[in-house]
């Protein structure tokens, strides 16, 4: 997904001389080498200095530029939190903070490299918008949006590498709107980000079992498409939320809130990371399973 981000950003940068990328000793790889070669003035590597990464991006935006700040998710948001809050959100600047390798993707690197609570943290700040694409193709759409919008700051939560494209047959991507990857009438699975791959597997299993399944990418976490979620709750017998995020402040509690507000009558099950640091150094899937997120467990729980 990071390579796709690079390609999309490079394409946008060719068209717009105001696009900058400020990185903190972490490069998106791939096409970004062309970006840095062709536009060295607009590729800024601050080194391991994330506070400066955000502050400099803010300064660029204050002079009318359209900067992206890029590093591993935890360092893009947690380390420079006050800069994100004050410099970007308080001043409402169109800076995209790219959090790469979000969730527990960096499984073997331990909790210091995990972002289990980034949606909650970023979402609590006024003016901050949040997009979490589910596959490389959606990442391209999201990056284009970030490169052209002037509304305010965006936290772009992306994966790392090797994600399959899941949205080939999906409806068009639209910022702030749920995106149905497939439509059904019995069960609706709401998810976002890299864990959409697992959501797709579960949807496939349910379909094999005779269920008519909707699979939805809730790529825009803020502003959340509340009406879209309300509609999903009204039109399905069962709604399932699957997210790679802590139980607090993510899609699951917000969906429950909407369900309460509209007096939804469907069954609602939510599956999230646990509210704990889990010391597991296996694969991404291993760590998700340690948090209780696996197709097998979820299929049993929703049966």
């Amino acid at each position: 997904m990071r390579n796709t981000f690079s390609e999309a950003l490079y394409d946008e940068a060719k068209k717009n001389p105001d696009i900058y990328i400020v990185v903190a000793d972490i490069s998106p790889g791939g096409t970004i080498a062309k970006f840095s070669t062709e536009y060295p003035e607009r590729f800024i590597n601050v080194g391991v200095a994330e506070q400066s990464m955000i502050g400099i991006a803010a300064g660029l935006a204050l002079r009318g530029c359209q900067p992206f700040a890029y590093t591993i998710a935890t360092f893009s948001l947690y380390r420079p939190f006050e800069m994100v809050r004050d410099d970007l959100c308080y001043q409402n600047l169109p800076v995209t903070v790219v959090g790469m390798g979000s969730g527990v993707i960096y499984s073997t690197l331990g909790g210091t490299h995990h972002t289990q609570e980034d949606i909650a943290v970023a979402g609590a700040i006024p003016n901050m918008q949040i997009i979490a694409p589910c596959d490389p193709a959606e990442c391209t759409e999201a990056t284009r949006h970030c490169a052209t919008q002037k509304v305010g700051p965006i936290y772009l939560r992306i994966g790392k590498t090797g994600e399959p494209n899941l949205t080939k047959d999906a409806e068009p991507w639209q910022f702030g709107k749920l995106r149905y990857l497939r439509r059904g009438s019995d069960v609706c699975i709401l998810s976002y980000g890299v864990i959409m791959k697992m959501a797709t597997q579960i949807a496939d299993s349910l379909a094999v079992g005779g269920k008519s399944v909707s699979l939805v990418s809730c790529h825009t976490l803020k502003p959340l498409d509340r009406e879209g979620i309300a509609q999903a709750l009204r039109t399905h017998k069962q709604v399932i939320v699957i997210e790679e995020h802590a139980p607090q402040g993510g899609l699951a509690p917000q969906t429950k809130q909407i369900a309460w507000d509209i007096k939804a009558t469907c069954r609602l099950d939510t599956f999230t990371l646990q509210d704990k640091f889990i010391h597991n150094y296996g694969s991404h899937d291993d760590l998700l399973a340690a948090h209780g997120l696996s197709p097998q467990r979820i299929l049993v729980a929703i049966a």
Partner: peptide, 30 residues
């Protein structure tokens, strides 16, 4: 930020210099 003549919101300490560097880079880039 947004008040007449004010280029950036400050108050929390240690934010201004990085923003000033970003502004200087933007001006140089142009």
């Amino acid at each position: 930020h947004g008040n007449p003549g004010i280029e950036a919101a400050t108050g929390a300490l240690g934010h201004g210099l990085a923003m000033a560097v970003g502004m200087a880079l933007a001006e140089r880039g142009r």
